[in-house]
Simulated assay, not measured.
Amino acid sequence: MEMRKYRTAMILVIGVLVAIMLWQSFSQPSVSDLKGGFTEVAFYRNENNTGPVVRVYIVTVADVENAEMEAYGNYMLHTKFGNTKVYFFPEGSPTPTNVSGGDVNFSAEFNGFYIAEYEKNASGLVVFERRN
């Protein structure tokens, strides 16, 4: 009888621990919790799996004044020795839908419209520049 009580208690304890771990896993903050109303419009990732991975995101922002753009950039995927760029455009402004890697990521006609740029380079250095 004692062994049955012990086993029941152990199952209960394990069940509670698993429930706590699941709750913790699914209640972590994410991009959707940030202020600003972000929408990803375009994305580029190079197909070179033997070298550095390059990612470029084009994102629109609904609430430019309160947007947590740098925090949004920190949530984006980044690969060690890779490069991640995020360009932020105000919602409703002309926004590129074709994105490429390299130094120039989209057509120059859109340069006057983006409001901020986030970049995390191969060494993990983050540069966030907000434009006026």
Rank of each mutant, 00 (worst) to 15 (best):
E2Y: 10
M3V: 09
M3T: 11
R4I: 15
Y6V: 15
Y6E: 08
T8L: 14
T8Y: 12
A9P: 01
A9T: 12
M10R: 08
I14Y: 15
G15P: 06
G15S: 08
I20M: 12
I20P: 02
L22K: 11
L22E: 05
L22M: 12
L22C: 06
W23V: 09
Q24T: 06
Q24P: 01
S25N: 07
S27F: 15
Q28G: 10
D33M: 07
L34Q: 05
L34P: 02
G36Y: 14
G36D: 10
G37L: 11
G37T: 12
G37Y: 14
E40T: 07
V41S: 04
A42C: 05
F43K: 01
Y44M: 11
Y44P: 01
Y44I: 03
Y44C: 05
Y44L: 05
N46K: 10
E47Q: 08
E47Y: 15
P52G: 06
P52Y: 12
V54I: 13
V56S: 00
V56H: 02
Y57C: 00
Y57F: 07
V61F: 08
V61Q: 00
V61W: 02
A62K: 12
E65D: 11
E65S: 05
A67Q: 04
M69S: 03
E70K: 14
E70I: 04
Y72R: 01
N74T: 01
Y75N: 02
Y75R: 02
L77Y: 15
L77G: 13
H78C: 02
H78R: 07
H78K: 05
H78P: 04
T79A: 12
K80Y: 13
F81L: 04
G82E: 05
K85R: 14
V86W: 01
Y87M: 00
F88R: 02
F88E: 03
F89N: 03
T95Y: 01
T97F: 07
T97W: 03
V99E: 00
G101V: 01
G102L: 09
G102A: 10
D103V: 14
V104K: 05
S107G: 03
S107P: 01
S107F: 12
A108R: 11
E109P: 00
E109A: 04
E109M: 08
